[in-house]
Every structure is written in structure tokens, then in C-alpha cells.
Amino acid sequence: MTYLAKSPWLIHYDASSCNGCDIEVLACLTPMYDVERFGIINTGNPKHADVFVVTGGVNELNRAVIKNIYDQMVEPKVVVAVGICACSGGVFRECYNISGGIDKLIPVDVYVPGCAARPESIIDGIVTALGILEEKRKNMTNVPQKSADNSASHNQNNQSAGGTQ
């Protein structure tokens, strides 16, 4: 993980999940699994977050909330669908109120299947997402903008500092 220049923060939202995956996401933050060693903090504010962790199969009432949270997050951002319900609807696929998967609504970068998804696989999914996040950030600096040169050199400095430490 030497290429990580910044601490990615995550926001978690329960989109009609049974809770199983949600308590496993929380368990990732506690001493046994401890994702804070990657610099990850669970935040409640979409504007502070880089990683959007969604669980559950998305019911009608939740569509607007998810869209709202996703739109409020600043670029670059990645979405991790945790649990089989978030991937495809799972056992609730045939329920009348379930859309069946987060990817029906917003683009998903990493799928973490499982019912309930184990903390190990959630951590693996989030770490994979961090690679994608870094990729997206690099691509963003190529976009011509006012402070493009400054931010690119800034990133390089950060990376070399991280390498020497």
C-alpha cells in the first residue's frame, strides 16, 4: 500500500439490508480487524468521504437517499457494494419492494458477495477499491484545469515522502 498518498474516509449506508452486513462493516473498524491501519475512518458526512460502502438491495424509499449521498460526494469516489443483496438482491431478489442491486442506480466499482459478507472479504474489497480510487485520482490530474500542474507536483512530493519513510 505504499502508493497511498492520503487517508481515504468511508461513508456507510444501509439500503434495506438485514443488518448482518452492516454490523460486519462496523466490526471492521474495531480492534480485531482494525481498518484504521489503512488510514480509513468511518465518517457521517458525504462531503468528507472517498469510499461509499452500501449494503442491501435498495427499496423504493431508499433510491432518492442513495442518489443524494452519491451526488454529494466529491470526485474522485468509489462505490463498494457489500453483501450479496447489494450485488444482486440476494434472497430478497423476488420481493416486491426490492430493486435488486446497487448497480441499478449508481455505478459500482467493487462487489463483495457473501451473506453476511465476512469482515476479511469486506477489508479486501475496500483495499481493492483504494487502488481504483488512486487510479481515478491520477486520471483526474490529466484533465486540463487551472491548478493541474500544482496538484500533480504536490502528489509527486507526497509519494516520494511516503517512499522514503
Binding site: S16, N59, L61, V65, F92, E94, C95, Y96, N97
Partner: peptide
């Protein structure tokens, strides 16, 4: 209503021994 899935209606689609899941 944010977590309502309507799973009670699934009894029509699942047989009673597998509805335990």
C-alpha cells in the same frame, strides 16, 4: 420504511422448510 423488503410475501414463492432461511 427505509428497510421494508416485503419478505413476508415470499412465503408464496418458497416452500416452508426453506423459508427458514
Amino acid at each position: 420504511g427505509y428497510v421494508h423488503r416485503g419478505l413476508e410475501k415470499l412465503v408464496e414463492k418458497r416452500e416452508f422448510p426453506e423459508y427458514v432461511f
